[in-house]
């Protein structure tokens, strides 16, 4: 350090032109050795290799896995899982937002009813709720909506319908809490500013509060979506032919239980990965204004890399 100091003009008072100033020598220090990192890496890699080895030696017919990964029945099961998830989430999100607004309402009846709903559906297992819906025909023979609609309960409460209601209504309770947290996260000053401009309460909610609440609501909702993809497998207990039930059936017929379970695992991973990517873009969209600059999307990153390549190559004579 003293050497470096000697080279620079002494005292801040003397003003040296920038080019006169000598840049001190770059620091070349011996880095700290992280022996712990090496040891832990080796241990983890060893364990990982052991697991892979064990599975490769297990009695798994990998060719069967490959054969059934794009089997028609399995794909239909995956499609059913996807549909059930989407519809159940739709119910959950819409009803959840209504419940969230109810819970924050000035009206004590609405507020308490919403509270009671959340208390009930969050307080009971989804599995029990699925059975409750599916067995509704034991206590109600008909669905009777007066002159509009009448039908036998067993016709209405198909496995799909029971799964949809069970999962969707349960989800609504969770979405209500997520929505409430989102709405409450928006600064009161935002509402005041909107009101001061003469905006009505409804417009204030729709134009100012909800768009900002979305930033808080989206990440946990994405989580719920992915959870729902997996929880929908519970619908197999009431006989809805989704991914898991289908794989159980195919697996037991072909005596390839483990192979089909691996197929199912791969399918669930594919679906959750797709949703995670979608979530990334959705979050990015609602992050507008919260950061000084939006992070680039993976696509933009690739494009930027390609462009910078071209630019470097440009003077070399690539340009036509």
């Amino acid at each position: 350090m003293t050497e470096a100091n000697d080279k620079t003009p002494v005292g801040g008072g003397s003003v040296a032109a920038p080019d006169e100033r000598v840049k001190p020598e770059a620091i070349k220090a011996i880095p700290v050795r992280h022996y712990g990192r090496w040891v832990s890496s080796v241990v983890v890699l060893f364990l990982l290799a052991a697991i892979v080895l064990a599975f490769s030696r297990g009695q798994i017919e990998w060719s069967v896995v490959g054969e059934y990964i794009n089997d028609g029945t399995v794909i239909r099961g995956a499609w059913a899982t996807l549909q059930l998830t989407l519809y159940a989430m739709l119910i959950g999100v819409v009803l959840g937002m209504v419940l969230a607004v109810m819970r924050l309402s000035q009206n004590p009846v609405l507020r308490n009813v919403a509270w009671g709903y959340i208390w009930f559906f969050r307080g009971t297992p989804v599995l029990v709720q699925l059975f409750l819906w599916f067995n509704l025909s034991l206590v109600f023979t008909y669905v009777d909506l007066g002159p509009i609609y009448k039908n036998e309960m067993t016709d209405v409460m198909t496995p799909f319908m029971a799964a949809l209601l069970g999962l969707g209504l349960n989800e609504a309770a969770y979405m209500a809490e997520i929505g409430r947290a989102g709405i409450q996260s928006v600064d009161r000053g935002q509402t005041e500013a909107a009101h001061a401009l003469g905006m009505s309460p409804a417009k204030t909610t729709r134009r100012i509060v909800l768009p900002q609440a979305m930033r808080v609501i989206i990440p946990p909702t994405g989580n719920e979506f992915i959870n729902m993809l997996k929880t929908s497998s519970l619908a197999y207990v009431i006989g809805f032919s989704e991914l898991f039930l289908v794989s159980r059936e195919v697996g037991s017929v072909n005596l390839a239980v483990m192979e089909l379970l691996i197929v199912v695992t791969i399918w669930y991973l594919i679906l959750t990965t797709i949703f995670s990517i979608g979530q990334y873009y959705l979050e990015r969209h609602f992050a507008r204004g919260s950061d000084r600059a939006l992070p680039p999307t993976p696509l933009q990153k690739i494009r930027a890399n390609v462009l910078s390549f071209r630019r470097q190559a440009g003077p070399g004579g690539v340009g036509a």
């Binding site: 005041e192 500013a193 204004g289 919260s290």
Partner: peptide, 15 residues
């Protein structure tokens, strides 16, 4: 709507 207000903490709409 005929009365404008300016706040200490600006309260601009961040989105």
């Amino acid at each position: 709507k005929d009365i404008g207000m300016v706040f200490q903490r600006f309260n601009l709409f961040p989105h």
